Simulated scan of single mutants.
Amino acid sequence: MSTPRFLDLPPGVAPQKIETPQGTFAVLEALPVSGVIERWPALLVPGLTGSKEDFLAVLMTLAHSGRRVIAVDLRGQYETPGPDDPAAYTCPALGADVDALAQIIGGGDPVHLVGHSFGGLVAREAVIDGRTRFASFTLMGSGPSGIEGKRAVNGRKIMEEVQEFGLEHVWHHRLEPEALSNDVSDEILAFLRKRLLTNSPTALACMAEQVLSMHDRTDELRQVEVPTLVLYGEHDDGWPPEAQSEMAARLGAESVVVPGAVHSPAVEAPETTAAALVRFWNAAEKHYLDTKSNAM
């Protein structure tokens, strides 16, 4: 479970709503303090029990690189409403939402796409389907197929308990004890409770099923030939670090191991994570412009 380092929005970050043909999405938008946008924008997609707030600690550092940076609540997550139809929460359906968001955010320019954990599986669908031109793609703490280890056990229990007992039960018996064991502040505890209970129960159960059962699409992703970064914590307990390293090798992608981080590098090591993203994004843009120039 990700826990934002702080809930007060830093200067330059504001809540917004983005209208798309797929619906309206709640986002946090970060802009350069100068107000001058010099580089291509970025879209950040959170994980299963997360939300846009999981990226709070990196938003302004990323925006300072001259970009508009958007962190989103997926359909059915926290402040983005969703229907009771389970079909709305498959990875392909959520990937179509990411496509729609990227096309609006980019306004004709390519967009850097980052997916954390389950968000990586969703974002991967958008890259593979080919409907949107992405400047780059980062898998952050996300693996080639269904999640493994302790988090797979937790995901299965969350899915079953949401379906049988509801969100209050999941909070009191699973997520609240975990938060208390991590000694989070009262403010963050209140936020985590509000966030969970605002989720669509249908969405949470269906997303949990997806993160457990997703099949390996690494070979398909490689064929897209979008610049790809695999970034993960040194002690990731979702997908094992060795599985993510192997995935990066199969993709021919760069990999970055974040020292000391577990499953949420943007929370646990924000400066290291942001620096790695900015460097990768700058390199991807330079490669694109060099390639375009050579083709002329």
Rank of each mutant, 00 (worst) to 15 (best):
residue 1 M to S: 11
residue 1 M to H: 04
residue 3 T to L: 11
residue 4 P to K: 05
residue 7 L to G: 15
residue 10 P to S: 15
residue 14 A to L: 12
residue 15 P to C: 14
residue 17 K to F: 03
residue 18 I to Q: 05
residue 18 I to Y: 10
residue 20 T to G: 12
residue 29 E to C: 04
residue 32 P to I: 02
residue 32 P to E: 07
residue 35 G to E: 05
residue 37 I to Q: 06
residue 38 E to S: 07
residue 39 R to G: 03
residue 40 W to H: 13
residue 40 W to P: 02
residue 44 L to V: 01
residue 45 V to N: 04
residue 45 V to L: 01
residue 45 V to T: 05
residue 47 G to K: 03
residue 50 G to C: 05
residue 52 K to D: 10
residue 62 L to Y: 09
residue 64 H to T: 10
residue 66 G to T: 13
residue 66 G to Y: 12
residue 67 R to M: 11
residue 73 D to A: 08
residue 77 Q to Y: 07
residue 77 Q to H: 13
residue 78 Y to R: 08
residue 78 Y to P: 00
residue 80 T to H: 01
residue 80 T to L: 03
residue 84 D to I: 05
residue 84 D to F: 01
residue 88 A to P: 01
residue 88 A to G: 01
residue 89 Y to Q: 03
residue 98 V to R: 01
residue 98 V to I: 13
residue 98 V to W: 06
residue 99 D to Y: 07
residue 100 A to L: 07
residue 102 A to C: 07
residue 103 Q to Y: 04
residue 103 Q to N: 14
residue 109 D to F: 10
residue 111 V to C: 02
residue 111 V to T: 03
residue 114 V to M: 08
residue 116 H to A: 09
residue 122 V to Q: 00
residue 123 A to F: 04
residue 125 E to A: 08
residue 129 D to S: 12
residue 129 D to G: 05
residue 134 F to L: 03
residue 134 F to Y: 09
residue 136 S to L: 01
residue 140 M to F: 12
residue 144 P to D: 09
residue 144 P to L: 08
residue 145 S to D: 14
residue 150 K to M: 05
residue 152 A to L: 11
residue 153 V to N: 06
residue 156 R to T: 08
residue 158 I to Q: 14
residue 165 F to C: 05
residue 170 V to P: 03
residue 171 W to C: 09
residue 173 H to I: 01
residue 175 L to Y: 10
residue 179 A to M: 12
residue 180 L to P: 03
residue 182 N to F: 02
residue 183 D to M: 09
residue 185 S to A: 09
residue 187 E to T: 14
residue 191 F to L: 08
residue 191 F to W: 12
residue 193 R to N: 08
residue 194 K to A: 15
residue 195 R to S: 15
residue 195 R to P: 11
residue 198 T to Q: 15
residue 198 T to Y: 08
residue 199 N to G: 13
residue 199 N to E: 15
residue 201 P to R: 13
residue 203 A to W: 10
residue 206 C to H: 14
residue 206 C to Q: 14
residue 206 C to K: 12
residue 206 C to N: 13
residue 210 Q to T: 09
residue 210 Q to A: 15
residue 212 L to Q: 14
residue 215 H to R: 11
residue 220 E to F: 00
residue 221 L to W: 06
residue 222 R to C: 10
residue 223 Q to T: 10
residue 225 E to I: 03
residue 226 V to E: 02
residue 227 P to E: 04
residue 227 P to K: 09
residue 228 T to H: 02
residue 232 Y to H: 15
residue 235 H to P: 07
residue 235 H to C: 11
residue 236 D to S: 06
residue 237 D to L: 15
residue 241 P to C: 07
residue 246 E to Q: 10
residue 246 E to Y: 11
residue 246 E to R: 12
residue 248 A to L: 13
residue 248 A to Q: 13
residue 249 A to D: 15
residue 249 A to I: 09
residue 253 A to D: 13
residue 253 A to H: 07
residue 255 S to W: 06
residue 255 S to A: 10
residue 255 S to V: 06
residue 256 V to I: 10
residue 259 P to L: 12
residue 259 P to G: 04
residue 262 V to D: 11
residue 264 S to H: 12
residue 266 A to Y: 12
residue 269 A to S: 14
residue 270 P to V: 02
residue 270 P to R: 02
residue 271 E to R: 14
residue 272 T to F: 06
residue 273 T to V: 12
residue 276 A to Q: 05
residue 277 L to K: 04
residue 278 V to S: 04
residue 280 F to D: 00
residue 281 W to K: 01
residue 282 N to Y: 02
residue 284 A to P: 00
residue 284 A to W: 05
residue 285 E to M: 00
residue 290 D to M: 06
residue 293 S to L: 12
